[in-house]
Amino acid sequence: MAQATDPGADGANPAPPLLRLRGVSVTFKTSKGLSPVVRGLDLDIRAGETVALVGESGCGKSVTALSILRLLPPAHASIGGSILFEGRDLLSLPLKDMQDVRGDSISMVFQEPMTSLNPVMTIGEHLVETIRQHRRVSRAEALRQGIELLKAVRMPDPERRMAEYPHRLSGGQRQRVMIARAIACRPKLLLADEPTTALDVTVQAQILALLRQLQQDFGIAILLITHDLRVVADFADRVVVMYAGRKVEDTVAGRLFGAPQHPYTQGLLAATPRGMRDAAGGRRRLREIAGTVPDPMAPPPGCPFQPRCSRAIEQCGRELPLLGPADGDGLVACFRPGAAP
C-alpha cells in the first residue's frame, strides 16, 4: 500500500499501474478559438486503488474522465498524450475495440441518476442488455445475474424492482441501478464523476459506503471526481488536486488533510465546512478563495494560481512552477510550498 500511494516512486514498483496517463492534453475547439482545458496531465491509478480528482468547476477533472473513455466528440475536442490501460493506448484503439473496453474493463457512473435510465425500459431490461452487451449468456441467466447485481447494490426487493420502470425509483435507487450496470461486467476501473452530488446528504453517505463495499468485494480501482473534500477524506487513498487544467498537488489522502502543500489546496480546505472538528473556537468563518478560475484561452503568465494566491512572489508571475517532490511525500507544483503562513 505504501508503494501504491506514493506517486513519485514509479520505478520502485515493478507492476505497471492499471491506468497511466502521460502528458494528456485536451483542447476544445470553440467559436472563439482553441481552448486548452487539460494541459499535460500525468496520472497513475493502480489496481484496486481509489484516487480522488478534486478541483473547482472547469478545472478539467470531468473532461479527464471523459477522455479516458473517449467520450468527447472528436469534432469538438482533440486529445493529446497517451492513456495506457493495461499497456494499451486507449487513444489509438479502433472504435470497435474501444466499445469492448467501455462497460467491460472500464465503466463510469455519472452525476445525474434521474436521467441516466431510459424511461421506456424496465430496470430488468437495463441490466439484461448491459450484461449481454459483453457476456454471451442467455436471457434467463442475465436476468438471474441482474437480480444478483441489485442485491449487490443493496436494492430493496430486487425481484420486484426488475419489472419496474425508472420513474418509480428514487434518485438514490436509480444511482444504485446505475452502479449495478457499471459493475455488471466486473470492470477493473470505475470512473465516478460526482456520483453523489445530485443526491440527498443521507443518500450520499449510503452510495459512498456502497462504492467502498463494492471496491473491497470486487477489487475495482476507482477514479472519484468530486469537488467535495469531505467525500474525499474518508474515501480516497490518494488525492490529485487540479487547477486550470494542471495537476498542482498529488499526495496521500491523509497527508493532504494534515499538511496540504499547495496554497490552492489550502484554500480549498479552508473553504470546506468541517463541522465539529474545530469546535474549540466556537463558530469558524469559512474562507472563500478570492478571484475566479482563469480563462483557459487567456491564462495569466507564470503560475495560473498566482493572481489569487496570497503567497505569490515575483517569480510566480514569470515562471510556471513544475510538479516536483513535496516536503515529505507526494508532488506539488509551487515555488513556495508548505504549511500556510
Binding site: D100, V101, D104, F110, L117, V120, Q133
Partner: peptide
C-alpha cells in the same frame, strides 16, 4: 443529448444499437 444515451455509450453499445434500441422507442 440525454444522459441515458451517454450511459449506453459508456457501457460499450454500438451506435446502430443505441439508435434502434434506445432512442427510437423514445
Amino acid at each position: 443529448e440525454r444522459e441515458f444515451v451517454q450511459a449506453c455509450i459508456v457501457l460499450g453499445m454500438s451506435r446502430p444499437r443505441i439508435i434502434l434500441t434506445q432512442v427510437l422507442p423514445n
